[in-house]
Simulated scan of single mutants.
Amino acid sequence: MEIEKPETKKCLHCAKPITGRLDKKYCNDYCRNSYNNQTKRADDKQIQKVNSIIRKNRRILKTLCPVGKATVSKEVLDAMGYNYRFLSGVYRSPAPANLVYFICYDYAFSPLNEDGKDMALIVKKEDHFDQFLENPWLA
């Protein structure tokens, strides 16, 4: 009578046969680290892309607003490559101003229209913004 050998497990990273404990998944620490780093890199790629865009938007706002408050034309933001689709928060100021600020970490801008020209009021984020950050469940 022939005894069946259990199927040899293979390393998830390099596919070499694994010896040792039955629940072992990798042949050594290098393979375990490499496999986990590759998996994490793939999972985090979209997050890194979005964070990179928001950081670029913040740099643009910071460059245009060296003293805490500035007004620039939308054309300037466009020329510098500002991406309006990505932000870290939204703040609606209370009446009477009723401005909407689009936040990129610690800088924000509010779209304005002055004499038919699209402008942006850029500000360094203030502490009171946190009290009125847009909450979709309370809207």
Score class of each variant (00 low, 15 high):
41 R>V: 03
112 L>Y: 04
32 R>F: 05
47 I>A: 07
104 C>D: 15
63 T>K: 04
7 E>I: 07
133 L>C: 12
94 P>K: 14
102 F>M: 09
15 A>P: 04
13 H>L: 12
114 E>C: 06
49 K>M: 15
130 D>C: 07
71 T>D: 00
21 R>C: 06
41 R>L: 08
77 L>I: 02
7 E>P: 07
51 N>H: 09
81 G>W: 04
106 D>W: 00
33 N>I: 13
55 R>V: 07
111 P>K: 12
96 P>L: 05
34 S>P: 04
97 A>W: 10
72 V>C: 01
83 N>C: 08
61 L>Q: 00
19 T>H: 11
119 M>I: 03
16 K>C: 14
36 N>E: 14
102 F>H: 03
103 I>G: 00
73 S>A: 03
16 K>W: 09
38 Q>M: 11
94 P>E: 11
29 D>E: 14
4 E>F: 07
27 C>T: 08
18 I>P: 09
80 M>N: 09
138 L>N: 12
44 D>R: 09
103 I>M: 05
101 Y>W: 13
90 V>M: 08
127 D>T: 14
114 E>N: 09
124 K>D: 11
50 V>K: 09
73 S>P: 02
51 N>R: 13
60 I>G: 01
1 M>V: 15
105 Y>I: 00
21 R>P: 04
82 Y>D: 01
113 N>P: 01
91 Y>Q: 05
49 K>F: 15
19 T>A: 08
129 F>G: 05
9 K>G: 11
66 P>M: 09
135 N>M: 08
46 Q>Y: 07
8 T>S: 15
106 D>E: 05
4 E>A: 15
82 Y>M: 03
95 A>E: 14
113 N>F: 06
114 E>M: 09
27 C>A: 08
119 M>Y: 11
70 A>Q: 12
29 D>H: 10
17 P>G: 15
74 K>L: 02
105 Y>P: 00
102 F>D: 02
54 I>F: 02
50 V>A: 09
